[in-house]
């Protein structure tokens, strides 16, 4: 893909940033995935930016990760505990080599283990983490500033977007290349 340009505008007020989002979208026809807000805390979906549709897609799929991994874990548990009994054929305590209850316990635990792994994978996958490259960011976000980040595909658009952001109350603008 060719180069893209980014503009990060920092805001101090929730009201301002919510107003800044729409003009930019309209000005360039920015798609859902190309515009983003940065904040130091979790705002409810759509509070800062109207990107609910995109997030809805993500959210509706995210559960699949722990769910499917849970199935994998279930299989691993059954194979591990049940398979051991089946293959080893050692009689202990007068119990048959394959027993339901212990297999159940192990299976339960493994299902949950893989569920945990799945959850983490879902986070990493959908949030695009880890990403240690130098991306458009400002440390002031951590201190409470709100950032509006937009991705455009030409130098001119970048300037234009920066102008719009400034107009809509951004107290600081950062421009970057290829760092969305």
């Amino acid at each position: 893909m060719s180069d893209h340009y980014t503009v990060l505008g920092l805001y101090r007020k929730v009201e301002t940033i919510t107003k800044a989002g729409d003009p930019i979208r309209e000005a360039f026809g920015v798609k859902d995935g190309d515009i983003e807000v940065l904040s130091s805390a979790a705002y409810p979906d759509g509070a800062l930016l109207d990107d609910k549709e995109l997030l809805h897609q993500v959210e509706s799929r995210q559960f699949l990760f722990p769910f499917l991994m849970g199935f994998v874990g279930f299989g691993a548990g059954v194979i591990l505990a049940g398979g051991t009994g089946y293959i080893m054929n050692l009689i202990v305590g007068g119990k048959s080599p394959f027993t339901y209850a212990p297999t159940g316990v192990i299976t339960y635990e493994f299902t949950l283990l893989f569920g945990v792994i799945g959850s983490v994978l879902s986070l990493l996958y959908y949030a695009g983490l880890p990403n240690w490259t130098d991306r458009a960011y400002d440390p002031e976000v951590a201190d409470g500033a709100l950032g509006l980040l937009v991705k455009v595909y030409s130098k001119e658009d970048q300037e234009k977007a920066a102008k719009i952001m400034e107009d809509y109350g951004a107290y600081k603008i950062k421009k970057g290349v290829n760092d969305f």
């Binding site: 994998v72 299989g75 691993a76 194979i79 591990l80 398979g83 051991t84 293959i87």
Partner: peptide, 11 residues
């Protein structure tokens, strides 16, 4: 691969 290695382990 992970589950396959578990299977392989006990076979």
């Amino acid at each position: 691969a992970a589950s396959a290695s578990v299977v392989g382990a006990c076979s």
